[in-house]
Design a protein around this nucleic acid. Sequence first.
DNA 1: TGGATATGATTTCCTAGTCAACTATTGTCC
DNA 2: GGACAATAGTTGACTAGGAAATCATATCCA
Lengths: 159, 159
Amino acid sequence: MTDPAPTAPQPVLPALDSHLGYWLRFVSNQVSHAFSLKLERRGVTVAEWVLLRELFEQEAAVPSALADRLGMTRGAISKLADRLAAKGLATRTTDKDDRRFQSLALTPQGRALVPELAALADANDAEFFGHLSAGERTQVEAVMKAIVRRLGLRAVPVD
Amino acid sequence: MTDPAPTAPQPVLPALDSHLGYWLRFVSNQVSHAFSLKLERRGVTVAEWVLLRELFEQEAAVPSALADRLGMTRGAISKLADRLAAKGLATRTTDKDDRRFQSLALTPQGRALVPELAALADANDAEFFGHLSAGERTQVEAVMKAIVRRLGLRAVPVD
DNA sequence: TGGATATGATTTCCTAGTCAACTATTGTCC
DNA sequence: GGACAATAGTTGACTAGGAAATCATATCCA
């Protein structure tokens, strides 16, 4: 660990880009950012899109279950629901039987919007990954799924 | 586009997890989150780590150049520098010749800390990707690098 | 019945960014 | 030489989220 060269005072670090995580984050950030720009033109954020999509498939959903599923806090869901409601895309209704519970549901506008946003998501994915060969695609996807499985990860990635 | 089945009112969306970007973000988020937990124990955030690392290699750096390189605004760098200074990890000095310019540099504590954090980064990467075969690693890395190159992306991924 | 407890949602405070306005300094060019 | 443009950094208003306290409702059980 001696350092005889007077012109090289600091030890060398392992290169940042030697980490696979670095490249993943790099690409992933760019993909997300590009997508957020597309969504922005429709007045929607990525988090909002994720929630809208959940509601589209569930018809009506309980906020705390959504929080679990999306890996967000209940507080965050609460505010997100506020925003969606303000935009006229979703509504809250409190459960008749147990008034602690709410259910969130899409408005007709919200329901109409989701497929359009889904098309943007498809386009975005194609933009970044469409040129990959089928082999590359499945290989990368298999590796990612294996990691998820191995570590027992859950939760839809939001941000 | 008619929908004859009364029990299936909504059209089906392309599955979210059919997107490669979905899996990338999923894994990438988990990697980042795990890393942020490790850093937290040393009282450092991910953004701070990235900046510290840059300073470690550059000896002294101009804030606005860093902002460019890290894909952050000058305002963010300014506040980040505040925090690093408050923690005694970096210092600001204004350029003698052009007093608009500053240069940021690590303090001895900052310099001492970086290799420790780098070890955490190594450990984190190994935790998620260490079990991959050399072939898988290089394959995934090659695909990511190709995407970066193809789209002419720059900027170190921070968040 | 009614008080402790549990649970869902909201609210408040905090952090860490962006954006845009602002300050300070330097350079330009008449 | 002096007004004005350009550039670096800072600041303030705003946004989105997390953590923890709080509010509302329901359940349990003595």
